[in-house]
C-alpha cells in the first residue's frame, strides 16, 4: 500500500503535514532543522509545479481568470504607488543634486533608479503583500473547509487547478505590472520636476530615454519574472500546506508575505551580482 503513495501526487500535501508533525515531535527546538525541512518541502513543491505545468490537461480558462484577478485587479494599487514613488523620489533628490549643480541630471537619475531597481523591487513587494497573502489565505481557507479534498474527490487535480494556474498568473502578470509601474513612476517624476520649475514633457522624456540603455531595461524585466514566480509559489505553498483551523489561514497569509518579500530581496541581490558580472 505504501508504494502507491508516490503515484498519488495529489496526496502530497497531506504527507507533507505528516512529515512536519513527525519532525516537530523529533526535534521541536531545532531551528536549523526546521529551516532545512521548510526549504526541502518548498523545493519539493516547486519541483512538483514544474512536473505538473507541462502535463495536460491545461487549465487555460482558470489561468485567464487568475491573470485577471492577480494582474488587472492590482493595476490601480500599483499605479498609484508608483506615481507617488516617482514624485517623492524626484522631490527628495532635487536638493541634493542642486547642491552639486547637477539639477539637470534629475530626470536621468530618477529614470535609472526607477527602471533598474525601485520600480521592480517596490512593485514586487506590493505584489507580495496583495497577491501573495491573497493566494496564501485563499488556498489555506480552501484547505480548512475541505474544498481541496472535495476537488480531489471529484477527479480534479487540485494542484494543477489551484497552484499551477496561480503561480503562472503571478509569473506572467508581475512583469507587466512592473512596466506599468515604471511608466507611472516616470510620470510621477515628471510632475515632481515641475513642482519647482518648468520642464517640458518632450525635454523630460528625451532626457529619460537618452539615459537608459538596454542593459538597464533587460535585466530589470527578466528578474521580475523570478519575483512573480517567487510570490506565486510561496503563497501557494503556504496556503496549500497550511495547518488545520482558522489560525492556519492567518498564519499562511502572513508567512506568505514575509517569505515572499525575503525571497524578492535575495533574488534581487543575486540578479544584481549577475548583471554586474556582464557589465564589467
Amino acid at each position: 500500500m505504501k508504494e502507491k503513495s508516490s503515484e498519488h501526487s495529489e496526496d502530497q500535501h497531506h504527507e507533507a503535514e505528516i512529515v512536519t508533525e513527525t519532525f516537530s515531535e523529533a526535534a521541536p527546538d531545532s531551528i536549523f532543522n526546521r529551516f532545512f525541512l521548510e526549504v526541502s518541502s518548498l523545493a519539493t513543491f516547486t519541483l512538483r509545479f514544474f512536473k505538473e505545468v507541462f502535463k495536460p490537461p491545461y487549465e487555460f480558462n482558470e489561468l485567464i481568470s487568475q491573470s485577471f484577478l492577480i494582474g488587472y485587479k492590482s493595476v490601480s494599487l500599483v499605479g498609484i504607488t508608483a506615481f507617488i514613488m516617482g514624485l517623492v523620489l524626484t522631490i527628495q533628490s532635487r536638493p541634493t543634486l542642486a547642491k552639486f549643480g547637477a539639477e539637470s541630471w534629475l530626470p536621468a537619475m530618477v529614470a535609472v533608479s526607477i527602471i533598474r531597481e525601485i520600480g521592480p523591487a517596490i512593485t514586487a513587494l506590493i505584489f507580495a503583500g496583495k497577491v501573495g497573502s491573497g493566494i496564501g489565505a485563499e488556498l489555506a481557507s480552501m484547505n480548512v473547509t475541505e474544498q481541496i479534498d472535495a476537488m480531489q474527490v471529484s477527479g480534479t487535480n487540485p494542484f494543477k487547478f489551484l497552484v499551477v494556474t496561480r503561480v503562472l498568473a503571478a509569473t506572467l502578470m508581475l512583469p507587466l505590472l512592473v512596466v506599468l509601474a515604471d511608466a507611472f513612476g516616470l510620470f510621477g517624476s515628471f510632475v515632481g520636476v515641475n513642482v519647482h520649475g518648468h520642464v517640458s514633457t518632450y525635454l523630460f522624456f528625451s532626457q529619460v530615454f537618452q539615459s537608459l540603455q538596454f542593459q538597464d531595461l533587460f535585466p530589470a524585466v527578466v528578474k521580475t519574472f523570478f519575483f512573480g514566480f517567487a510570490v506565486g509559489i510561496i503563497g501557494s505553498y503556504k496556503g496549500y500546506n497550511s495547518s488545520e483551523g482558522t489560525e492556519g489561514v492567518g498564519k499562511a497569509a502572513n508567512s506568505a508575505v514575509v517569505f515572499a518579500s525575503l525571497m524578492i530581496f535575495i533574488i534581487d541581490m543575486v540578479a544584481v551580482q549577475i548583471t554586474s558580472l556582464f557589465q564589467s
Binding site: M1, H8, D11, V153
Partner: peptide, 13 residues
C-alpha cells in the same frame, strides 16, 4: 472513509 475515497493512503492492508 477517507481511505475508501483515496484521500488517505492506508499504511497496510
Amino acid at each position: 472513509i477517507k481511505c475508501i475515497v483515496g484521500l488517505v493512503d492506508p499504511d497496510d492492508g
